[in-house]
Simulated scan of single mutants.
Amino acid sequence: MRGETFAAFREIVRRIPAGKVATYGQIAHLAGRPRCARAVGCAMAGCQDSSVPCHRVVDRLGGTKAAFDLYAPGTQRALLEAEGTVFRPDGTVDLARCQWDPLEG
């Protein structure tokens, strides 16, 4: 079950366009596993597939995670900013402007 669930999470994350983000809970909900936000985090942290833009997944408040900062502090934010993702003054992603709506593409 875990392998199939993680594969479903990765497929959804592949659809997030540059400049947009999704939350862990949003990915879980879209995969039909609404109470599995933490599992999404595990799937993203362990993902070695470069075709999965894991950096586009943030927490429910738009926060980035240190797990993506393997090479330098702020790596996830830098990757998102390079794609045009907008951050608020408190350092979180502006979800009102940048949260992905899968119905829009």
Results as ranks from 00 to 15, higher is better:
residue 6 F to S: 11
residue 34 P to V: 03
residue 42 C to R: 13
residue 7 A to T: 11
residue 89 P to H: 07
residue 23 T to E: 03
residue 53 P to W: 05
residue 71 Y to S: 15
residue 92 T to C: 12
residue 35 R to L: 13
residue 104 E to T: 15
residue 36 C to Q: 14
residue 76 Q to L: 00
residue 75 T to D: 10
residue 32 G to F: 01
residue 23 T to F: 01
residue 84 G to Q: 04
residue 36 C to F: 14
residue 29 H to P: 00
residue 48 Q to W: 08
residue 55 H to A: 09
residue 7 A to L: 12
residue 89 P to N: 06
residue 91 G to W: 04
residue 16 I to Y: 05
residue 7 A to G: 10
residue 94 D to S: 10
residue 73 P to A: 11
residue 85 T to S: 02
residue 92 T to R: 14
residue 93 V to Y: 02
residue 74 G to P: 01
residue 51 S to H: 08
residue 25 G to I: 03
residue 29 H to D: 14
residue 34 P to K: 03
residue 3 G to F: 13
residue 88 R to I: 01
residue 2 R to E: 14
residue 62 G to P: 05
residue 92 T to H: 12
residue 36 C to L: 14
residue 67 A to D: 09
residue 33 R to V: 10
residue 90 D to C: 05
residue 98 C to A: 09
residue 102 P to G: 09
residue 104 E to Y: 08
residue 95 L to Q: 05
residue 85 T to L: 00
residue 71 Y to R: 15
residue 39 A to P: 00
residue 29 H to R: 14
residue 20 K to C: 14
residue 53 P to E: 04
residue 29 H to G: 09
residue 55 H to N: 03
residue 89 P to C: 03
residue 58 V to H: 03
residue 52 V to Q: 04
residue 42 C to H: 13
residue 42 C to G: 11
residue 40 V to P: 07
residue 4 E to L: 14
residue 13 V to H: 03
residue 103 L to Q: 14
residue 36 C to V: 03
residue 71 Y to G: 12
residue 29 H to C: 08
residue 105 G to V: 07
residue 32 G to N: 02
residue 96 A to W: 10
residue 33 R to G: 00
residue 96 A to M: 10
residue 101 D to P: 00
residue 5 T to H: 10
residue 84 G to W: 07
residue 100 W to P: 06
residue 11 E to G: 04
residue 95 L to A: 08
residue 76 Q to N: 04
residue 55 H to K: 00
residue 50 S to N: 11
residue 32 G to R: 04
residue 40 V to I: 08
residue 62 G to R: 05
residue 53 P to R: 03
residue 74 G to H: 02
residue 67 A to I: 13
residue 29 H to S: 13
residue 86 V to Y: 01
residue 9 F to W: 07
residue 5 T to D: 13
residue 99 Q to S: 09
residue 88 R to F: 00
residue 69 D to I: 00
residue 90 D to T: 07
residue 25 G to E: 02
residue 60 R to G: 15
residue 70 L to N: 11
residue 89 P to T: 06
residue 43 A to T: 04
residue 21 V to M: 01
residue 22 A to T: 12
residue 7 A to S: 15
residue 97 R to M: 11
residue 49 D to L: 05
residue 93 V to G: 07
residue 95 L to H: 04
residue 13 V to D: 04
residue 5 T to N: 11
residue 11 E to T: 12
residue 99 Q to K: 15
residue 33 R to L: 09
residue 14 R to A: 09
residue 49 D to T: 05
residue 97 R to E: 12
residue 15 R to Q: 15
residue 50 S to P: 11
residue 25 G to N: 03
residue 68 F to D: 04
residue 45 A to M: 11
residue 86 V to L: 12
residue 46 G to Y: 02
residue 40 V to E: 05
residue 101 D to S: 11
residue 14 R to K: 15
residue 31 A to T: 03
residue 100 W to S: 06
residue 75 T to G: 01
residue 41 G to H: 01
residue 46 G to Q: 07
residue 23 T to L: 06
residue 1 M to P: 12
residue 28 A to T: 07
residue 63 G to S: 12
residue 69 D to L: 06
residue 10 R to K: 12
residue 53 P to V: 07
residue 9 F to M: 05
